[in-house]
Design a protein around this nucleic acid. Structure first.
Length: 430
DNA sequence: TCTGGGGTCCTAGGACCC
DNA sequence: TCTGGGGTCCTAGGACCC
């Protein structure tokens, strides 16, 4: 008798282990068993830790200066973040994953969902094969979680990282699900953060299994639709699909913390110029125009003598734009309005909102005939800037950014761009 | 002295309109 | 003197994710 192909939903979640750390180790095999951390911008916080560092009790997001001595004592290797390297290795991972499913959702730089519904193979064995392939072809370790819903695949992945020696856990079987959910705190479930976990705990929901068994009506009335849906997903009822099409961003943001902190309006303006350029570049990349420009500032939040000043101000552009100069003009005016002397400013940023596609935006623009010629002159200039910068990163920028580029903090422990710059390719000695 | 950056979604409440 | 009700849109704030 022919067996019908199973149409039972099945999802795999592939997650790179300690991704940034693994990327740094890839070209430094001497670091494989040593403690390694990667720092945030400005070398401020720990944003990735090797297992050895986790074992030392260094938490995610720890200020570096608080753990620097401990790390030194244990001979840890410390890296500034090298995003071009991580992005390139991520793209290699994703392109390998495409060979393992017709439906791939790139969920983040180091995570992807694969739709394995209806696949005839043994899923756990396929997971092991996938893991081995990535190790051979890219050289990065991953964990694989498999389940009948995305949430259960996430649970399986967590479990794979914790207990599975081969890094693959299959939770398609309800009996296995119960065993794992009973041992998992509710805060470990995807979508249940610290605050919700505390609230759920008050009504006796402490484990993932408790949430799975909770009454839907109660969850819906006390919390949100999201919590209710999470509980259903834990029951094996699939509510979330693999999203293969990347929708355009609804807002685009660029902000940085300053080290040292800034006091002068001119310094902030120069930084803002850089942020506007970066944000507008992202805007043009996704072929959108922005209607609304928002600027935010934050003074030193850790200053015990002065309350934190953190103004936010927004303005609408007369016509939607993707021109760095128009956006900066608007943002600069907002900055002038909100700037107060006497503060040490720790952070500044820009947020572009009210995004519309180029097609929509240009249709609206047609109503303002007098601005069209100016707009198209700007478009070709921006296009040239983008083309030059793709070939020669940071080659062209607004004059207003010069000052910021001089005083901004330089990362102290940056690894080479091994895979994206010819002159920084690793050298192999024969 | 030193404390990241960039997103999404949901809900409640107010404004406004008919 | 008596002064409705429902729909929609927007915004702020809260929560989550990596």
């Amino acid at each position: 008798m022919l067996s019908m192909p199973s149409t039972e939903p099945c999802f795999a979640l592939v997650d790179c282990n300690n991704f940034y750390v693994s990327c740094e180790r890839l070209f430094r095999p001497d670091l494989w068993r040593r403690p390694v951390v990667v720092l945030s911008n400005n070398d401020g916080c720990v944003i990735a830790r090797s297992n050895e560092v986790k074992a030392l009790g260094v938490p995610m997001g720890a200020p570096y200066h608080e753990v620097a001595a401990l790390l030194r004592r244990h001979n840890a290797e410390v890296f500034s973040s090298n995003f071009p390297l991580y992005a390139d290795l991520s793209a290699r991972i994703m392109s390998v994953l495409e060979g393992f499913t017709p439906h791939l959702e790139i969920y983040s730089i180091d995570e992807a969902f694969l739709d394995w519904s209806g696949l005839p193979q043994n899923k756990a064995r396929l997971g092991v094969h996938l893991k081995q392939t990535l190790w051979r072809w890219v050289g990065l370790p991953v964990s694989v979680g498999i389940g009948p819903t995305k949430t259960l695949a996430k649970v399986a992945n967590e479990w794979a990282k914790k207990i599975s020696p081969e890094g693959v856990v299959d939770l398609m079987n309800p009996r296995c699900q119960k065993e794992v959910l009973l041992q998992m705190p509710v805060g470990g479930v995807w979508g249940i953060g610290r605050r919700l976990a505390a609230k759920l705990s008050q009504i006796g929901i402490k484990t993932a299994w408790d949430l799975r068994c909770a009454d839907s009506g109660l969850l819906q009335s006390r919390y949100s639709i999201v919590v209710t849906q999470t509980a259903l997903e834990l029951q094996g009822k699939s509510c979330l699909q693999v999203e293969t099409v990347v929708p355009p961003r609804k807002e685009i943001r660029c902000s940085r913390s300053f080290r040292p902190k800034l006091t002068e309006l001119s310094q902030l303006h120069s930084a803002l110029s850089e942020f506007c350029c970066r944000a507008a570049e992202k805007l043009r990349q996704q072929r959108s125009l922005a209607h609304v420009v928002t600027v935010f500032l934050r003074s030193d939040a850790f200053d015990p003598k002065k309350p934190c000043y953190q103004p936010v101000l927004a303005a609408a552009l007369r016509t939607p734009s993707q021109d760095s100069r128009w956006i900066l003009k608007c943002a600069g005016e907002l900055l002038e309005k909100m700037y107060r002397p006497g503060y040490r400013y720790q952070q500044c940023g820009i947020l572009l909102g009210g995004l519309v596609s180029e097609a929509e935006g240009n249709a609206q623009l047609a109503l303002f005939n007098e601005e069209i010629s100016q707009k198209y002159a700007g478009a070709s200039l921006m296009e040239i800037m983008d083309r030059v910068n793709r070939r020669f990163p940071n080659g062209l920028f607004l004059g207003a950014s010069v000052d910021y580029r001089r005083y901004r903090y330089r990362p102290q422990q940056l690894s080479p761009a091994f895979t994206t710059r010819w002159n920084e390719l690793p050298v192999v000695k024969a």
